[in-house]
Computed example of a mutant assay.
Amino acid sequence: MRYGMHPQQTAAEAAPVHPGRPPLKVLGGVPSYINWLDALNAWQLVREAAAVLGVPAATSFKHVSPAGAALAGPVDEAVARLHGVDPATVGPLTSAYLRARDGDPKSSYGDFAAVSHEVDAELAELLGRVVCDGIVAPGYAPGVADALSRKKNGTFLVMEADPDFTAPAAESREVFGLRLSQERDPVPLSDEVIADVVTGEVPAASRRDLLLGLVVLRRTRSNAVCFLKDGMALGFVSDGSLPFRDNVDHARRHLVTCIAEPGGSIRSDEVEAACRAHGIALARTGLRLFHH
């Protein structure tokens, strides 16, 4: 690695758990410790989102959490003008990244990008014009990786993910001389996770957004709330949870129509009553999904 978490931590390395089978490989640039964390977590997010929802996905990562995430879809005209693309002809992968970056443009300044599909020339040309520090993808069209590697005087990070890599069943980390080990979260995200709708009805488009939100929160640090619309993560609230009805009241003021949350709180009945009063559909997942 270029260095560890900080430049003064000069002794740093990354090695695969199983020699000869790394999940990612570096095609250009020299990553730091945080670059590796961003790439590994961002790739897992877009791979899972694309697998669950069946369309290209992208995320914009900063400091080991998504600043934005989105599925391929329509690009806002203002965003299209800002980035010099035609919203009528922009490709699906470029649209996914633009929509992800538009979730929080300020935080996405100097981001690490991840996309679920092979990077084409259109997306590469866009990446060459925005302030972005690197990208991870399962592949690159001919000549694209070399072109991206020349960005930022050769310091732009180009990383390729192995789409067939399967992580070990257990994971561990060492902190201050102690090794902590646990089973990897084994629960697949699907419609079954949001099937327990205790009030209201969840339309198909909202189910897609709720599932995308669960995928995103699985890779977001700390407890968090994620607001979504039309296949885009529009905002996050760190250290958020839903134990009180005033959260539902506030959500309604922002025109929220569907909520997915773990349930199991001593005030879950109050949350459900608030959703009924506001006509908000409420799905109980029984899952806590966050990343530390």
Rank of each mutant, 00 (worst) to 15 (best):
N223V: 01
A57W: 00
R184W: 09
V216E: 04
V197W: 05
I194V: 15
A69W: 04
H291D: 14
L228I: 03
A39L: 04
L126P: 03
S265K: 09
P168T: 10
S172F: 06
R207L: 06
L45K: 04
R221H: 04
L211K: 00
G286N: 06
G279I: 03
W43P: 02
P92F: 04
S116V: 01
R245P: 15
D133C: 15
P22A: 00
T10C: 05
S108N: 01
A281R: 05
T257I: 09
A137V: 09
Q44D: 13
H250R: 07
L93E: 00
V79Y: 09
A80G: 12
D249M: 06
L148I: 12
A277P: 00
M232A: 14
A78C: 01
A260N: 12
R207D: 07
S65M: 13
S149D: 02
V131G: 00
P16F: 01
R284D: 08
F112I: 11
P16R: 10
L37Q: 10
L217M: 14
H6F: 15
A14K: 08
T94S: 13
S116W: 11
M159G: 07
S95P: 01
T155P: 00
P31M: 11
S181V: 14
H83K: 02
E261K: 03
G54K: 02
H254F: 09
D120M: 12
D239F: 08
A78I: 15
R101Q: 06
V52S: 07
L234A: 12
V225Q: 13
P56K: 02
K62C: 07
C258K: 07
L228P: 11
V202P: 01
V175A: 13
A78N: 07
